[in-house]
Design a protein around this nucleic acid. Structure first.
Lengths: 250, 250
DNA sequence: CAGTAAAGGTCTGGGGCCGGACCATTGACC
DNA sequence: GGTCAATGGTCCGGCCCCAGACCTTTACTG
């Protein structure tokens, strides 16, 4: 990189900042972005098996792409066997199946190791922050009920996939309580990044019981309106999960 | 929105989650994204007046766009009087001037009020989280020196704009210490969102002194390797800044 | 049973963006 | 002074994506 002009502050080691400041723009990837988001939403259980996506025109508007581009992404998901489209009134695009959780190849994990470790760090920041914010806000009865229901769903989920999805919905549900689109977006992206890796955690009784106890502590702190306790509980939860995952990453 | 199929969990109020889960893909906005990022980098002082941007080919690769698209964004910034290009060896694209900070129209602020309030909430989460992570890591002498230098730059900055830029560089500098691209990205976006609004804070002696004292506490806690104190100090700093800004937003 | 609304399906012309190749300028080096 | 490398500048064919218009299907309603 060329040296800076004289006016630039020499005491500030800003090259690293210049390095990281300009990042990929994500232009020209409408199809890819659509496909990824829809697959992630289905995978995380936001659109469970049997549910119907919003109508195409509405979805295109919400995602900020043309209907043609959206339709291509939906076509690809249909080809993959995840979606089914039915035309006519009362029709729509329905979730047929959940995406296969492909156990990632060790070399692939190796390639993505740094990125996944970064995602773990970021997850801890935003999920703990989300808990703090959620516990700071007055919650409606409806919101408390939603939270308790999501917690109960995790406890009674059978099998690795169902448990993973219920877990994701609980974490995402907490994020929605913050009322902050930025936080929701950050938690969503972090969940999406780590979903496959989180699914690799062995669903052993002892792990589940520990995890369930931590979830309960988090939910209780949020409902009690105790921001510090909510954050600390989530930090502990993220730390324990991260310890397991770091074992997988090597 | 169409009702869900029978299998969908009725106890989970997931409509809000479905609402927020799918967000704009940002397709087909290469030029816009480039322009915005470059203008922000200049505005935040990452590329100060007189400095040279990386060569076009390198910049295009880093931002993941074609050189043609990047050149269009640079051309627009040149037309705006911010950049100057010189061809030939030893040439390059130099920063001529800083973007005008246009004092935003009250109606505009009103339109963006919710978004800016959200950015304040998000800022608190990611900046406090960044401090926590930065204070948790072993820092090199170089990094400590960078931090102290950035702090000194804020203290000696003259005038609203110079002070704002030095302030941004300190916050961004802290983010770089985390070593986490996700955190750096989040802090960058949050700084970019709030930059204009933060510049609107009156640069009164009492405000500056208070802010400087808080900055010092933050830096001291990070250097001391005290994550909780670093986070709390940044939370306090963000809260005090937010209180001023909420006054502006009404 | 006809009309209507709500859904998906198809087609078209045009702009945005891409990757690559090549040209022109400038300064360092031998 | 010629060569070379490092920079910006220009051009081209092609793909992605867009917005809109219009068609077809399906189920509800009066």
């Amino acid at each position: 990189m060329n040296g800076q002009a004289a006016q630039a502050d020499p005491s500030m080691e800003s090259e690293p900042l210049m390095e990281v400041m300009l990042r990929p723009v994500r232009a020209h990837h409408g199809f890819e972005g659509c496909f990824e988001q829809l697959a992630t939403a289905i995978r995380l259980g936001v659109y469970p098996k049997g549910s119907t996506l919003p109508p195409e025109r509405e979805l295109a508007a919400r995602m900020g792409v043309s209907r043609a581009t959206l339709r291509e992404a939906i076509a690809a998901l249909r080809t993959a066997g995840l979606l089914q489209s039915v035309r006519g009134r009362g029709g729509g695009t329905r979730v047929l199946a959940l995406p296969e959780i492909v156990p990632t190849n060790p070399p692939d994990l190796g390639e993505r190791r740094e990125e996944l470790l970064d995602s773990l760090v970021f997850r801890r920041v935003v999920e703990a922050g989300a808990c703090h914010v959620a516990a700071s806000r007055p919650l409606s009865d409806k919101q408390r009920t939603m939270l308790r229901a999501a917690l109960a769903d995790v406890a009674r989920a059978q099998g690795r996939r169902a448990h993973r999805q219920a877990d994701s919905r609980l974490h995402l549900g907490i994020a929605t309580l913050t009322g902050s689109p930025h936080i929701i977006d950050a938690v969503t992206r972090s969940q999406a990044d780590l979903h496959t890796l989180l699914t690799a955690i062995p669903v052993l009784s002892v792990n589940i019981e520990h995890s369930d106890a931590q979830h309960e502590a988090i939910v209780r702190a949020i409902i009690a309106g105790d921001p510090s306790r909510a954050r600390r509980s989530m930090e502990q939860h993220c730390d324990d999960t991260a310890a397991l995952l770091r074992g997988l990453l090597g």
